[in-house]
């Protein structure tokens, strides 16, 4: 398991390739990449700032990964999340899951993102044409996490 919370940009292609580089028993890699959009909730977004809770954020992500590893037979899980200032088009989050067969990787990746969205302490503040605003939590994210 690798959990990284960092201000630096990352290369999603590199991260996906690294998921199976050291293990030829890996038959499936599912990689999710979340990007900053230039539009959200009716407003143009020029960029955002991602706040986190140093210490707790890393622990919360590790806990989610452990739970995924208990539910599915996984060979490798990497979670990478950026913090600080981000511009539209930049990747925010990468979740990579490697397993012998695809279904475990698909399901675990989906599970990790649903839990990350509702349990990992990150908060987005968007710069919009009408000024900065905090993004509000969505009920649909709660419902998505509830199905697991």
């Amino acid at each position: 398991m690798t959990v990284r919370v960092q201000p630096e940009a990352f290369d999603p292609g590199f991260e996906v390739n690294a998921m199976h580089a050291a293990n030829v028993g890996v038959g499936a890699v599912v990689g999710f990449v979340g990007y900053v959009r230039d539009f959200n909730d009716g407003r143009d977004v020029a960029g955002m700032f991602l706040e986190h809770y140093p210490g707790m954020t890393e622990k919360a992500l590790a806990k989610i990964v452990v739970e995924a590893e208990q539910r599915w037979p996984l060979l490798k899980v990497d979670v990478l999340h950026r913090i600080g200032a981000l511009e539209p088009g930049e990747p925010i989050v990468f979740v990579g899951v490697a397993s012998a067969h695809r279904q475990a990787a698909f399901d675990a990746c989906n599970f990790i993102m649903d839990y990350l969205k509702t349990r990992a302490p990150f908060w987005k503040k968007e710069n919009t044409q009408e000024g900065p605003r905090w993004v509000e939590g969505k009920q649909s994210d709660q419902e998505a996490a509830g199905r697991w």
């Binding site: 979340g34 991602l50 986190h52 809770y53 210490g55 707790m56 622990k59 919360a60 999340h81 925010i92 989050v93 993102m113 990350l116 969205k117 509702t118 349990r119 990992a120 302490p121 990150f122 908060w123 987005k124 905090w134 993004v135 509000e136 939590g137």
Partner: peptide, 29 residues
């Protein structure tokens, strides 16, 4: 809310020296 860097509910018991955090719903990812 969180107690000692773990999400918790409002009825979570507390002890001397604990770290409690309050925050709005998380919006990462």
């Amino acid at each position: 809310c969180a107690r000692n860097e773990e999400l918790c509910k409002l009825d979570e018991p507390l002890a001397e020296g604990d770290e409690v955090a309050f925050f709005p719903p998380v919006t990462g990812g």
